[in-house]
Nucleic acid binder design. Structure first.
Lengths: 155, 155
DNA sequence: CCGCGATAGTCAACCCAGTTGACTACTTCT
DNA sequence: AGAAGTAGTCAACTGGGTTGACTATCGCGG
């Protein structure tokens, strides 16, 4: 192992790994007839399926302002993946929920993404892959006050 | 383990881990009197120390066009971290090399970054940390034709 | 039950890192 | 020598994101 190789910072590997996975994901989505998406779409869809989301919550999740989140949701709405409706219990709030088309996209995303992780596990094995996942969860929670930090990489 | 927790995609964890490390790094650099940097600075400094870099190579490394790389280098030059000089062996090329100030910044960056990885190893242990590093190297090389992909996260 | 601070969302202006496209200068291949 | 390819630059533009100001609504303490 060369001197340079021994020292590759994890931060750099994380950035590369994220970029690589997202690029591959979008490439394969494109092949299956779901072109022109942004990485944020998937994260929003996934979170919005778990529970109805407010704009503010989306901003926090992604690590951006509520205004930016609002623009993002608007573009997702235009593309037909989500819709915004007033919250009956709080007139200030508009709730973001998946449309049928959004559910279909998310299904494809999860299917393709599962293939990607499978590809990875064929290189390093399932055990190491799952070790990575649980180690990352542990570290991030420990070093970030118990909860997970925002998703969007700061560049 | 809840249903949601079991399924946290690695891509999301990588993004969070990168963001977290970079944010912490910049925070600590700021405390030590090195404010106002972009993540790319460190990657360029590190690569330029190993060997003289061309603008094109910087673009490839980071995953952006040579024009964008040129702008970046210009701002690093303005900040006094690098300088560009003509390549004696090829008059088309301008070579990017570290200034003394650039070397000093890189030293601090590496010092602080080492602290961050040490913090991580105190949560999951050195073995798991190094396993993560070598597994990521293996996977990225295997899934990217032998060499490492570009650094900048696509967002 | 009033009033005030806090919160959700929107609008508008702006910023700036990065892209696209066109160009010059130089090198390399044949 | 000529053609194809490569390094860098200039200028115009894009678009995701921020800042700041505003409205409407909620909820708590007095």
């Amino acid at each position: 192992m060369t001197r340079a190789e021994a020292a590759v910072p994890l931060a750099r590997l994380f950035a590369m790994a994220f970029r690589h996975l997202i690029d591959e994901l979008h490439e394969r989505l494109d092949e299956r007839g779901w072109p022109d998406h942004r990485p944020a779409f998937g994260f929003v869809l996934l979170a919005a399926r778990e529970q109805p989301l407010t704009g503010r919550a989306i901003g926090d999740l992604l690590g951006m302002t509520k205004q930016a989140a609002s623009k993002l949701v608007e573009s997702m709405e235009d593309a037909g993946y989500v819709r915004r409706r007033p919250d009956p219990s709080d007139a200030r709030v508009k709730v973001v929920a998946l449309t049928p088309r959004g559910h279909r996209l998310l299904d494809v995303v999860e299917e393709v993404y599962a293939e990607l992780e499978t590809d990875w596990s064929q290189v390093i094995g399932v055990e190491r892959l799952e070790a990575m996942r649980s180690d990352l969860l542990d570290v991030l929670r420990a070093r970030h006050g118990g909860d997970l930090p925002a998703v969007r990489p700061t560049w």
